[in-house]
C-alpha cells in the first residue's frame, strides 16, 4: 500500500472506532494529531487503532517496542514497507 492508501485506512479505522462510541466521523488528514485533543481518542482507542491497522495492512511495526508518532501522517509512514 502507498502512504496515501494507508492514510485512508487510518481514517476509516478511526471512523469505525468513533462510530462504535456513537460519535460522528472525524476528518483525518496527514497533519491530524491523533492524541492532541482534536479527536476524542484515549489510549485504549489508540491501542485499538494500532490493532486494526495491523489487520488492515498485514504487519505490526511495533513488534520490537513502541515507536513515537504524533500525526496520522507519521503513523502512516510506519506502515510503508
Amino acid at each position: 500500500m502507498t502512504e496515501d492508501q494507508i492514510l485512508a485506512e487510518i481514517s476509516k479505522a478511526i471512523t469505525q472506532i468513533m462510530s462504535d462510541k456513537g460519535l460522528p466521523a472525524p476528518t483525518v488528514t496527514a497533519d491530524t494529531e491523533l492524541l492532541g485533543g482534536e479527536l476524542p481518542i484515549d489510549s485504549l482507542d489508540l491501542a485499538m487503532l494500532v490493532r486494526e491497522m495491523e489487520e488492515r495492512v498485514g504487519f505490526d511495526p511495533f513488534q520490537d517496542g513502541f515507536i513515537d508518532f504524533r500525526t496520522a501522517g507519521e503513523m502512516a509512514k510506519l506502515y510503508v514497507k
Binding site: 485533543g37 476524542p40 484515549d42 513502541f66 508518532f69 504524533r70
Partner: peptide, 29 residues
C-alpha cells in the same frame, strides 16, 4: 485524555508523574 493530561501537567508545572506504562506511551505522543 492524553491531551488533557499533558495540558494539566504543562499549565501547572507538574514535577511528579506516576502512571502505567500504557499511560506513558500515549503521554509521550
Amino acid at each position: 485524555t492524553p491531551g488533557g493530561f499533558y495540558a494539566a501537567a504543562r499549565d501547572n508545572a507538574v514535577t511528579q508523574i506516576s502512571g502505567t506504562p500504557t499511560f506513558w506511551r500515549s503521554f509521550m505522543m
